[in-house]
């Protein structure tokens, strides 16, 4: 019984000590790029126009030559006036002409 309790307490204390040993590793390591990622507000607060002289109107394009006029677009191509000759068609049998019957029974004589 005593031995069992001893074993248990050694296990409990050993686990506790192991937890401390493991947690001691946390937080003292020095990492690069950890924790500082995209920080938009910080970056934005750095940027300012205050010291930028706003009263000077600098025309960056001052030495640029004038833009040439747009060239006239080429004329639209016109469709050919004459229609191209149609392809020869193979002879097609004409349908039979609708003729009245040759013989018609005459009305019955009385």
């Amino acid at each position: 019984m005593t031995r069992k309790v001893m074993k248990r307490s050694v296990l409990a204390l050993g686990l506790g000590a192991a937890t401390f040993t493991l947690s001691a590793c946390d937080g003292v390591t020095v990492g690069v790029g950890y924790g500082v990622g995209y920080d938009p507000y910080y970056d934005s607060m750095l940027w300012n126009d205050y010291y930028h002289d706003r009263d000077v109107d600098v025309d960056v394009d001052i030495n640029r030559p004038d833009r040439p006029d747009r060239p006239n677009p080429p004329a639209r191509p016109k469709p050919p006036i004459a229609k191209p000759p149609s392809r020869p068609h193979p002879p097609v049998a004409r349908p039979p002409a609708a003729r009245p019957p040759i013989h018609r029974p005459s009305p019955r004589r009385r």
Binding site: Y41, Y42, S44, M45, N48
Partner: peptide
Amino acid sequence: WMGFVSPSRVSSIKGGLRYLEDIDKFL
């Protein structure tokens, strides 16, 4: 987020507001 800055050559509340105008469009 919260940020503090003490810009140089800005000496009054009025100047501070102008400075703020020049950063708030980025913020």
